[in-house]
Amino acid sequence: MNSRETGGGEPAIVAEHLHKRYGHKVAVDDVSLRVEPGEIFGILGTNGAGKTTTVEMIAGLRRPGRGAVSLLGLDPRRDRATVRQVLGVQLQESYLHGALTVSELIGLYRSFYPDPRPADELVELVGLEEQRRVRFEKLSGGQQQRLSIALALVGRPRVVILDELTTGLDPRARRRMWTTIERLRDEGVTIVLVSHAMEEVERLCDRVALLDAGRVVAIETPAGLVARAGTQTLDDAFVALTGKQLEDVG
């Protein structure tokens, strides 16, 4: 069973009642969400709200304690080989082969996919033209982050999960990355964006899931969240809905 049919109308991602505990600590208590094809879907919450664990379960990196995930109609763990062809993931704090250069790493990751994006296009998408021959370990934190994003896009994925897209990037690089994300949306790619940054969420996301203590507090458009909380800004809406201050990183 090497191939699957996926309908054009069904959701890109369906997560139902996800639950995950590490030892005695419950990281994700009960998370359900649906992401429509072509949508930019934000996952917003404080540190420890369960954002990363949620997307790691969606990506098939962690097995849910309870609940189920469907990605383009596939099970990320059982249909691993198929899902890897259509899903691009940027992990938080992931490291790459330190002694390899930007070009070499892009070449390596391109070799994993049947129809990869051209190397030049990837370098240009994340603005690393000047760093092609620089080793990964010599890149700045922001440059490493940008390369990591480029590698998530190598295989022309239909769904992309970006965990902390612009954390650690300077304002210019951040805006450039936003333009890149909008370009992907225009290509019809579905994007899940884990974020701390309100400005980013407001500008990019069609809808947002607000997570608090491992649970979904609300799923709404950014404007809908503001209206629902009866506040002026998304920042205030976040505080009103979760009772917590969002530490805006970067």
């Binding site: 090497n2 191939s3 699957r4 049919e5 996926t6 309908g7 054009g8 383009l72 596939l74 249909d79 080989a81 198929t82 062809q85 259509v86 082969h97 002694a99 390899l100 070499e104 070449g107 390596l108 070799s111 994993f112 049947p114």
Partner: peptide, 23 residues
């Protein structure tokens, strides 16, 4: 609807990887 193929990386990918590990 579209068909998604489950494809494993091929010989070229193995050679690239061995080359990278050698570097």
């Amino acid at each position: 609807s579209t068909v998604i193929e489950a494809r494993r990386p091929g010989v070229r990918s193995w050679l690239t990887l061995v080359g990278c590990e050698a570097k």
